[in-house]
Amino acid sequence: MSTTTQRIIECNGIHINIAEQGEGPLVLLVHGFPESWFSWRHQIDALAAAGFRVVAPDLRGYGKSDAPQEIDQYTILHLIGDMVGILDALGAATAVIVGHDWGASIAWQAALMRPDRFRAVAALSVPLRPRGKAPPTSLMPRTETAQFYQLYFMEPGPAEAELGRDPRATIRNMLFGASGDGVAAARAAAAAGGPTPNLAMVPKGGGFLQGPGAPKALPSWISENDIDFYGEEFKRTGFRGALNYYRNIDRNWEITGATAGMQVSVPALYIAGDRDFLLSFPGTDQLLANQKNFVPGLRKVQMLPGCGHWTQQERRNEVSTALVEFIRTLPSR
């Protein structure tokens, strides 16, 4: 069996690091926050073994890819441009695009805007959220004592300082806290009389990282070596590039006015864990119930019992199997 290799390519005016393996039709795997190509390590092997050419980039601002300093260099148009640029650099006319978290948002929008290049889309955790009538930050929850975590991420400085203080501990606590195991532990603690944490809200004057943190023994789906890899990446890069994605949320709304009302026409798959904290966001239940209206090509919604936010890592085999089955049913192009 072939092994995953990495190299730097030039695309869309910057340098992007890609991990790649296998031969056959191209599958592009797009990671989320705060991760890297490494979050797809299990799917890379499985998809390559199934007969596909698999490419997983470090998104701009992450890992070994370039990290432009200017906040406005991280808009959704830049990110889709990077995906198209990767296809061009590889000499590929089309690809199936698969994304998780921020990568899912990129994958949905890439399929929406460039169905000529992205012949199908699979999204993990984040459903397609149609463009609303108001800037997204104006609708984000705020109380006298707390604010939505994405609002906390908006201001340059505090969030990168907090997350960057001990990158390894940050990643370890975030991966556990938002996992199915972390959610179950929090619910058990609340049932025993402890506080009920809300992962989506940041206390005023407080930070994003809340609660007791990860236990000494990690769940079986993540190892200390995995944490080491992520920790070293963010120790080197910091979190500014990753946080700049959030700082363009309203700008993305402004620059995508031309896509209002458009539908994702290509074949689509959606997978999420039933303990994913993103599913508790206001209105998400209705969004999922009506997803077919925005994604007429949606073939399947697969919910993973007991799984949290880190879908492809927590349920590596189920996600890999679902992706292989979905891609194999697509028309060859």
Rank of each mutant, 00 (worst) to 15 (best):
G205T: 14
V202K: 02
M201W: 08
Q210S: 14
E224L: 07
N225K: 14
L199Y: 13
K204N: 15
F229E: 10
N198V: 15
R187V: 11
N225Q: 14
P212N: 07
A200C: 09
G193I: 11
G180R: 02
I222T: 01
A189I: 08
Q210T: 15
G193L: 12
K216A: 14
K216M: 04
D228G: 03
F234Y: 14
A188T: 15
A200Y: 03
A186D: 04
P195K: 12
D181H: 13
P197H: 10
A200L: 15
F208C: 11
V183T: 14
I222N: 00
I227N: 02
S223M: 09
D228E: 06
G205I: 12
A185H: 06
A214K: 02
K216V: 05
A189Y: 03
G206F: 03
S179H: 04
I222F: 03
G194L: 13
P215M: 02
P219S: 04
E233A: 07
A191F: 13
G211N: 10
G177Y: 12
P195L: 09
G182P: 00
D226L: 09
S220N: 06
Y230L: 11
S220K: 09
S179R: 05
G180A: 13
A186N: 07
A190M: 05
I227G: 01
G211W: 07
F234V: 06
R187T: 10
A185R: 14
A200I: 06
P195F: 09
A214R: 00
P215S: 11
P212Y: 02
P215A: 05
V202G: 12
A200M: 14
P219C: 11
A217T: 14
A188I: 15
T196A: 10
T196W: 00
A214V: 04
A190T: 03
Q210L: 10
G206L: 02
D228R: 07
P212L: 08
D228H: 05
S220R: 07
G182M: 03
K204D: 15
S179P: 02
P195W: 08
A189F: 06
G207V: 06
A186Q: 12
V202S: 13
G180C: 12
E232T: 09
D226R: 05
V202R: 03
V202I: 12
Y230V: 07
E232V: 06
G231K: 06
G231A: 08
P219I: 10
A200K: 12
P195C: 04
A186K: 03
A184Y: 00
G180M: 06
P215L: 04
N225D: 15
G193T: 13
K216F: 00
F229R: 13
A214L: 05
V202F: 02
E233T: 07
P215R: 02
P212H: 06
P219V: 09
I227A: 04
G182R: 00
G193S: 08
